[in-house]
Design a protein around this nucleic acid. Structure first.
Lengths: 340, 340
DNA sequence: GCCATTGTTGCAACCGATTGCAAAAACTCT
DNA sequence: AGAGTTTTTGCAATCGGTTGCAACAATGGC
């Protein structure tokens, strides 16, 4: 049932080494031998065993993908792109679903056991120290959606969250909102912290603007809805507009506003972040900041592949710009209209 | 850097076999030896190499997951459950994203190369013949969300789609709809075909009921919206209510109805299938048929694990019941109310 | 104290590839 | 044709485990 090197070698009348060499890039085999081998391999339906090959070369063409976002719809795109991207380069993903535990040790052990060639951490909520642990364990690692730290030991690909916070605040101010609110994801998430910094920075720089802040327990619909309900019921008065941690949170918040009879954008404006597919759905129509997820993942895949083929590759940071996408959950801009 | 059996054996002062045996279930080692080995292993931070182990035993604890639904939000749940479930049993998923190609040969080759122990095909659109190919290739396979065929060669876990079609039709009729429409997923999808059969069966059995049918190009928002727009514009008159292929299709269709100013459920009723998380969102509030995805995946994982531990296990079919979930996209039932 | 029985141990072969090395074959070039 | 190069080839060791087998130790029964 199983066809091995040996079978092919025997049929082709050559040594096992010869067969191995015809299947490895850049090895020295004569055309004659190659022909015989290929013909025999084809006839037998032979394909090299990745495990055995991985054992002897130390390279498995497996890439670990670590994430904890499995409930956020943006993960669909992350995942689709990631698997397709790797497939194109002949790599396979080995997935680690972090669920609760945030101790990297266990994941490292697991990925080590399968001798993955590299690791991608795809999460905007895990701290750099988590990613660092993989680097320290000797695994090449890229942090997609990661936080920018000065002089990191690993590659980071993502967006400038502080700047997104600024952009959101400016967008609200430009549209005439004065009491603006930050409704972030979980406090511990680096993306939340960074976006808040940028948001407050802009607010603080404008004397007529006041900002409030609050945090949902997760980047999820339910958490967004719950937190907005709390605000509606507890706050003496709501902000005029909210920058929500991400789109799914925004949708949850909008759901709360709607149930409580608060009109969007009539009474309260909402701006999200991510621009996931749903944001443009007619019955959602969310004004948001576009995060180029596809490009981020593509670049991540390209980078990890490159790292593996070159000896050394100094840690890089690659940030993508995030444009504002105007839809229907903020009142129109009051800035002077520019001529086309 | 890498700790191997040999290192542990030397430190513990025993043979390599002894070390191997302490790490394999049910092997014969004395307590004394086990202690020494465990102590040494702990001290060195040793963990067995899954590849090497896989090579010699032929079992890798890798399970292939094949799917082509990466754009449907229900996949989030499928994926989350699947990875978590496998993790619990000490297995790892190896993902194959089918994108376009529906030729099983390539996937088989790939999964063979990594010597996966078993395969799960998670898709309601792939034909039994696709799954059969894996079985024929000697890979234990479970088809989750698969079509029921009499006397299959492989295990099927899912729902009775024909029956769901009946349930949907009856639900519409009970609520007083007489001209009912089937707005299915792609024609080639077995789930679409089966649901249509059940739907038409009920319609045909009632002289006062007439049914129409049409098909979206995919189980997706865009396809649902496009097809419903087509219906609105081309049909001489719309049906009074539609059974949509699944929730995401329903949401697309509702978006189309809303943009064209057709009220739901005032003028047209909608019933979906899946009961995905979004269906209960306040601004969607979709009446739908609940597909117990969590249970299906859990059972699938349990089953594949069981298959691998028992010698033979005759192909089984396990179907889960699908209750109707009443929400806001159908007019209330006109059936005589039953006393509680 | 001896034999039978059961439980442990280590040796060595094996899983299916890769690869350094030296021998053999195929080329150059006089 | 023969010496000198360059390519191609096969041997054998290796990657990190597992496992059948035979040798050995421990246990119990008498």
């Amino acid at each position: 049932m199983k066809i091995t090197l040996k079978d092919v070698a025997e049929l082709a009348g050559v040594s096992r080494s010869a067969v191995s060499r015809t299947f490895t890039e850049g090895a020295s085999v004569s055309d004659k031998t190659r022909q015989k081998v290929e013909q025999a391999a084809h006839q037998l339906g032979y394909h090299p065993n990745a495990l055995a090959s991985g054992l002897s070369t130390g390279r498995t063409k497996l890439i670990g993908l670590i994430s904890n976002n499995f409930h956020n719809p943006i993960f669909l795109e992350v995942f689709d792109r990631f698997t397709r991207g790797l497939q194109e380069y002949g790599f396979r993903p080995l997935i680690v679903n972090l669920t609760d535990e945030t101790d990297p040790a266990q994941s490292i052990r697991l990925l080590r056991q399968y001798s993955v060639d590299g690791v991608v951490v795809a999460s905007s909520t895990l701290p750099p120290s988590f990613v660092q642990a993989f680097h320290d364990a000797g695994l090449p690692v890229v942090h997609a959606f990661g936080r920018v730290v000065s002089d990191p030991d690993f590659h980071v690909i993502g967006i400038d969250n502080v700047d997104c916070g600024r952009l959101a605040a400016r967008a609200l101010v430009e549209r005439g909102y004065r009491r603006i609110g930050f409704l972030g994801g979980p406090r511990f998430a680096t993306s939340t912290q960074d976006r808040l910094v940028g948001f407050l920075e802009v607010a603080a720089s404008l004397s007529e603007v006041s900002a409030t802040q609050s945090f949902a327990e997760a980047y999820s619909f339910d958490a967004g809805r719950a937190e907005m309900l709390r605000l509606i019921r507890q706050e003496t008065c709501l902000a005029e507009a909210y920058f929500c941690g991400d789109d799914i949170l925004s949708i949850g918040a909008m759901s709360a506003l709607e149930s409580e009879g608060v009109a969007v954008p009539g009474e309260v404006g909402i701006i999200g972040l991510n621009d996931m597919e749903m944001a443009r759905w007619h019955n959602i129509d969310l004004t948001t900041i576009h995060q180029p997820i596809g490009e981020i993942i593509m670049t991540t895949v390209e980078l990890i592949v490159e790292i593996l083929s070159t000896e050394t590759c100094p840690p890089s940071v690659r940030l993508f710009p995030c444009p504002l996408v105007e839809r229907g959950t903020l009142r129109p801009s009051q800035a002077i209209s520019r001529s086309a």
